[in-house]
């Protein structure tokens, strides 16, 4: 609900009244980092606002986006993460193959593999998505590595993600409470990692906590995605519930909020702060420039 705040104006007219909306999202947008905000003294305000929203909507299912929402990332842009991950894979492969490819070779193989997987997997209802297994198979083939190396790739991927993610303390606590009251919690992701891989990462980060969620849905498994809007209807059908029974929380405006609401779900925007986005943009530019100076132009794959 919009709350009026005070404002000043000239004497000819009455003072205008200013209203702001969506207090949770506004606070998240304005903070320095979400990690700091959600671990600090104002985390309680965020939690209270979410509780209010749940109380007013009374959903039966609470749904969270995974990456950058339920699990918080640091400010390394995506392409830089792929390159770091490639370094990990290269180091591990050195232990098992005669001549391990370099990190930059692995990065190129991965980038081509992602494109290949995305384009060659059978489309479902007009949606396309890649899968990490296929990405790895392409990279392994392109680099002429033995089939056994695929396990090394996947283990390194999961280890790297685990080391670079933290659990969102506010949302995790909310999930536990919601389930304890009889509600269902689902995690929904547009990602090339399937539910098995996401589940492994969550287990590794859980420190023994087992009651966060009931089910994971990933576009890597279903092909249909949040960003197309179709995954929401699919989930509602799968759980045999009306769309209005769902409340989804996510950082992506289009995929987590606009599309969810168009599908009849309730949705709360949990955005990345402006400061964090700026930091990621800066890191991405620096990354591209560094590799350009080494003779490799990665600008066509530069992603936040």
């Amino acid at each position: 609900m919009a709350q009026p705040t005070s404002a000043t104006d000239d004497a000819t007219f009455p003072a205008p009244v200013i209203y702001e909306f969506a207090a949770v999202a506004r606070e998240l947008l304005a903070c320095q980092t979400r990690q700091a905000l959600l671990a600090g003294p104002t985390a309680g305000t965020i939690r209270a606002a979410l509780d209010d929203e749940i109380a007013s909507r009374e959903p039966r299912v609470l749904s969270f986006d995974v990456f950058d929402t339920f699990l918080l990332r640091n400010n390394k842009p995506e392409t830089a993460r792929y390159q770091e991950l490639s370094t990990h894979v290269s180091d591990r492969l050195a232990a098992s193959v005669a001549k391990a490819p370099s990190d930059i070779d692995l990065l190129f193989a991965r980038l081509h593999g992602m494109d290949f997987s995305y384009r060659t997997r059978k489309a479902v209802e007009g949606c396309r998505e890649g899968h990490i297994e296929q990405v790895i198979r392409y990279a392994r083939t392109a680099l002429n590595l033995p089939r056994e190396s695929e396990k090394v790739f996947l283990d390194a991927e999961l280890d790297y993600e685990t080391a670079n993610l933290t659990v969102n303390p506010v949302l995790a606590a909310l999930a536990i409470t919601f389930r304890a009251r009889g509600g269902k919690v689902i995690l929904v992701s547009d990602m090339y990692l399937g539910k098995a891989e996401i589940g492994t990462i969550l287990t590794r980060l859980s420190n023994g906590v087992t009651n966060w969620y009931d089910k994971i849905y990933s576009s890597a498994d279903h092909i249909i995605s949040k960003r197309s809007g179709k995954l929401f209807a699919h989930i509602a059908k799968d759980l045999d519930l009306a769309p209005t029974q769902f409340l989804h929380v996510g950082d992506a405006w289009q995929g987590d909020v606009l599309r969810a609401r168009e599908a009849g779900w309730g949705a709360i925007h949990f955005p990345i702060s402006r400061q964090e986005v700026t930091e990621r943009e800066r890191a991405l530019r620096a990354f591209v420039d560094t590799w350009k100076s080494r003779g490799h132009d990665l600008s066509q794959w530069a992603r936040l």
Binding site: P4, P14, E20, F21
Partner: peptide, 13 residues
Amino acid sequence: NCDQARIRLVDAV
């Protein structure tokens, strides 16, 4: 269905 966090309403009265 809009991004309410980015909206500021000014009521001129």
